[in-house]
Each structure stands twice: as structure tokens, then as C-alpha cells.
Nucleic acid binder design. Sequence first.
DNA 1: ATAGTTAACGGAATCGATTGCATAAATTTA
DNA 2: TAAATTTATGCAATCGATTCCGTTAACTAT
Lengths: 352, 352
Amino acid sequence: MKIKKEVTIYDLAKELNYSPSTISRALNDHKSISKKTIKVIKEAAMEMGYRPNNLAAGLRNNKSNTIGVLISRINRPFMASLISGIEETARKAGYNVLISQSNDKYENEISNCNALYDSRITGLIVSLSMETVDMGHFQKFVDKGIPIVFVDRVPDNFNSYKVVIDNYTAGYSATKHLIEQGCTRIAHFAGAQHRNIYEERKKGYVDALQEHGLSVEEDLIIHFKTLSFEEGDKATKKLLKMANPPDGIFSANDTAAVSAIMCAKKMGVDVPHELAVIGFNDDPIASIVQPSLSSVSHPASKMGAISARRILEHSGQNYDSNLSEITVLGTEIIIRDSSLKNLHVLESKQSR
Amino acid sequence: MKIKKEVTIYDLAKELNYSPSTISRALNDHKSISKKTIKVIKEAAMEMGYRPNNLAAGLRNNKSNTIGVLISRINRPFMASLISGIEETARKAGYNVLISQSNDKYENEISNCNALYDSRITGLIVSLSMETVDMGHFQKFVDKGIPIVFVDRVPDNFNSYKVVIDNYTAGYSATKHLIEQGCTRIAHFAGAQHRNIYEERKKGYVDALQEHGLSVEEDLIIHFKTLSFEEGDKATKKLLKMANPPDGIFSANDTAAVSAIMCAKKMGVDVPHELAVIGFNDDPIASIVQPSLSSVSHPASKMGAISARRILEHSGQNYDSNLSEITVLGTEIIIRDSSLKNLHVLESKQSR
DNA sequence: ATAGTTAACGGAATCGATTGCATAAATTTA
DNA sequence: TAAATTTATGCAATCGATTCCGTTAACTAT
């Protein structure tokens, strides 16, 4: 197999009798090169099959036109959509996207962080691992002036760009929705409380209860480790066996919410009339499960796009150094069957 | 904000009174450097916070220890798991992963392909876009000796590594399963026939019918464009309204299969007794929908891991140049409620 | 017409790691 | 002990693009 040699700006220079400097400038539309020369050079470059060597340029400029992404897991609907949004935006601007997953392990987050750092990424987009508390591994980026955008799972003790949703309001609204549907004993499937998103969702839940004159019962707040299907199943079983079981559940994610629905059905508990359920994320499963799951929809892809744009803006020319800019996006309560008690009441009235 | 300067091998050389060559060799465990010197240099490197500059090394070696991934869409369960497998394997070997999605557009595939090429990736992992027919854009990789691994959606006219599942057998088995459950008029939701996976699944379907003495009716084979939920809903409606409707459906993906189940329920057709359904991919929704969807499970993450390993092996030293190595993985029929007629028959017999 | 500008381009250093070749020292062999 | 190896290290070119600093020529202003 013959290996073709790559065309460089030196080859172009020789061919066209220009210096490499001129070639380089022409290819970058430098103002001090005449339009005519630029045209000639670009055409020759095209014809000779010239392709820029990003590594060489990166070495010289000490950056690689690459955005690094550091997340917990790729194969979660939210994360996949997030990446999708990042990739789309980045690529349109001619940037590459490097991904790495921590699998929610602090150690992996550190080593991936270092690997991305070594790759001279232009900026870093992070959704923290479940375990992460100390933020030391991100300091080197700050020291080097490399922008970091935290998405969704963000730290509260680190000054940087942040792109989040209003978890508090979402939690409040979801809970309020259940209250409006007539629930009076609402349980909450809470995530790890050192992660902002879960803490805020819980706060919204608590405040909604209190502001509507309902008591907050610790028994009804289940603290999950991973909000998995299994955990949800177990928690639901326990709740429904209580002497005074809840009539509603606000789950901090959809996986656990779906497990609650399925567990309730298995136990002969009617959803939504005996137990109304609302989840979080609006995963694809939410509209498939029966009764379909009400949920809070998350603009995942948009969050990715915005995060990428933050980095592009930061490395652009007209960049206004305001490192702690926080973007808060709205959410939407998607009401489906799992929480719709009122309508049904209405219907049964009509059918009498 | 103060920007810290990076430590290079020259800094180490000056500090330790060695030449940069020695530093470089020591850091790479070159045999011609004494273990003592290596130890001294590595410790100093650690202490001074040295981090290798991948761009410089990449420029010199004309490769970047990076695996490029070119897929249609990230936010599909199968693809997300595939990437997850690639990333995990690559990172363990110290490789980075660059991702790009074509959104199933031929044009995007070409431009992403070029972008990855320009990034001097060590190898490329591809799952073809729905539109791709011509393979010209991959030739430059071959010319440069850069390995390409096609995964899942592979070409049949291009000599390269391939990692696939046995789609024919899977299609055959899925159809056979329906036949064994007593179905006699089995419809097929077929994908774009120029993509190997869909063509082979259909072939398996056709052969299974014929070998079991069932006729192949063109009316029962619906050719989809994207196998979306909407398409599936429409197709199911049409099928069930036929004078002689099918009693089984083998769908080439789960999305369309789920839509069939939901459509049938809406139309009052009992699944599985009046209509048995089996899908493909074993997406998370398969176990959530009711009745739960039988499906063919795809070892997505494993396929990703194997693909990555192919590239690592290729660029390793003891590489045996056998460019057309094809890996075929097995699949598993996951039987759930949507296709289980026999058991039910048994149960109803017992209950008499 | 002469000084002052501007436009268009070239020279050469630079980014940081790698490596073929050369050399010096240490060790073994004859 | 001289010669032949082996071991450990240094020199300097190289990868390809970028950019600071000139330099020349053409052009403008006074």
C-alpha cells in the first residue's frame, strides 16, 4: 500500500513562488494580502488537495480548536442529547468535540480532566460526577485562562460559566401540580443532596408543600443513591405498605418514577387516582409507560448548544470577560396520565 | 488573571542538566536510558508538574492518539451505548475520542469525515448515514494507512474492518419465534434496503417464512424511511384495517414496534393474541411498554469496545495486516409479553 | 519633487516532542 | 592491555503553521 504524502504550505509556496508566510496569511484571509493573491493561492490549494494540519497550528497557538466534554455517562437520554447539542454547535464553528465519561466516579473525572487538559482543549464543558465534591482538578484550567462551562450538575463553590435549569421552580411546580390534582400526602424521590439539581428540586418540593398548608414528613422523603429502577421499585413498595401511604410521588428522575408506576400497578394501586406520579427529564420512556408519565422537560440539546456557544464566545475576539455568567433555562411541566386525576373526576361525573 | 507557563522537556533538561533527548526518552521508558536516570527524571517531572504536549508529539509523529467516531445520531440508545464502549476502551489505552454526527445526511458525513481526517486521527469508527451510497470520502484514510472500522451500518463494497451482528440470523430467529407462537400472517417493518442491516433482517424474515411453509406477501412488508414512531403508527393502522390483517409483526427497530403495540391497543386489537409483535435493538422502552416488547438485543457497548480495540491493535506494534477482518457478534432474542401467545394459551387451558 | 504612508510580501524564529546519528564512558572479550 | 562491544547520553534536524519584524515598491500629500 502506497502512502500518499500530505501537501503543506511549503509545497504551495514552492509551486507558486510565494513564501510560506504569504501562503499562510492568504489561507487565513489576512488583510495584508491582496485579494488577487488570495484567490490564486486558495485555488491552487484546492487543486493540490491541501488540507491544514491542525496539530501544527495547534502547537503554534497552543490550542486545538477542540471542546472537551466531561460527563458522567453518555448512554442516558439527557446526556446524549446534551452532547448532540454541543457537537452540532461546535462543528458548525469548525471545532472538534472530545468526549469522556466519568461513570460517576471522582477518580475518573480527575484523570479524564487531566487528559483533556493535556489535549489543549479550547474549553471544557462539565457535568459533575455524582461523587465529586472537591473542585481542585479544575483549577489548572482557570490558571491557564481556559473557559469551563458547568452544565446541569454544577458546583456552587466554583466561579465559572454555568448553564442550568431552574430546578427549584421546576420542583415547586411539579409538586404544586400534584397538590392541585388533589394530592395531600406527597412523597419525594430525592437524589444525592450534595448535587445542586437534586437539592434544589427537593427545596422546591418542600416549599410547595408548606406554602399550600401541607406538612413535610420526613418519612415521605426517600433519599436515593442513584435514582435507579431497582431503588425506585424498593422505595415504592415500602411507601405503599405504610399504614398511611402517600397519594402522590414527585420523583427527581423518570427512571425511578416509571418504576413507581409499574410497582404500583403490580400492587394493585391505581395510578393516578390512588397514587399520582410525576417525574423529571421527560425521557422517551415517559410517554411509553402506561399510564404515561407526567414529567418536567429539560431542554438538553439547547443546554448543550448554549454551553458550546459560551466557549466559542470566550475564545472569540469581542469577548467580554465576565467569567461567572450563569444561564438559567426554563422548564416545562408535561402533564400526562400519571398525574391527571382532575380530568378523570370530571369525566366520571359526566358519565353518570 | 495570571497565566501560568507550561513546563516542557526543555525546562526539565535545564533543571536536571540533561539534554531534551534524554528527558524525552526517559519519559517514554526508552531502553537506552538507565533505570536510575529514568526514575530521577520522572520524579522531577512529577514534581515540576510536567505534562506532555500531545500536539507537539502529534505533529512530530503525524498522529494524535485520537480515535474519530462518525455516526448518524448520538441520542439514540444504541449509538450512545456504542460510543460509551468506544470511549471506555480508548481512554484506558490513553486515547482520546472525537465524535461527530451526520444526522443521517450524506453531506454532513463527508464534511465530518474531512474534519476528522484533518485532525490526524489514529483511526476512524463509522456507522454509515442512512443516505450514504458512495464511499469515496473514505478513500483518503486508506491511502494514508489509517484504519477504518465500520460498525453496524457497514458498506458491502469497501474493504475494511467491520464489526457487525448477524442480522440475517437475528431476523430469521425473530420471525421463527413468531411462527412458533402460532402466527401465520407476519408483517415486516423494513428499513432502507440499501443499508445492510435492514436488508439482512428482511432476508432472514423472508427465509424464515418460506422455510416454514408460509407465503411471503408483499402487502405485509412495509418499507419505512426512518422507522419512526409516526411511520410505525401509520403503517400499523393500515395493516390492521386490511380485510385480512396480519397476526404478527417483526419490526426492524423498537421505536416502530412500540408504536405498533400502542396503535393496536388503541384500535382494540389484543397484543399478543391477535397481533404478536417483536422489535429490534432492545431499547429501554421495550421493557417499559405494556405489554412489554419482545426484541433482539444488540451488544452495542461491546461492539464499540471491539471497534476501538481494532484500531488500537492496528496502530500497535505486533500488528498483522489483515485489513478486511470482520467481527460478527451474536444476538439474543429477548422474549417478553408482546409475542408470548403460547404461554397464555397454556395458562388459559389450565384455568379452565 | 521629497518626505511620509500604505500595501504586499519575505525571513526566520517559534511552538514542544521525537529520533537518527554521533560520541563518550564503561564493560567485556581476546 | 588493546580491541570490541555495550551503555548512556547529546546534537541537531524535523514535523507544519504562525507571526513579529523587516523590506520594497507604489502611492499620497505638501
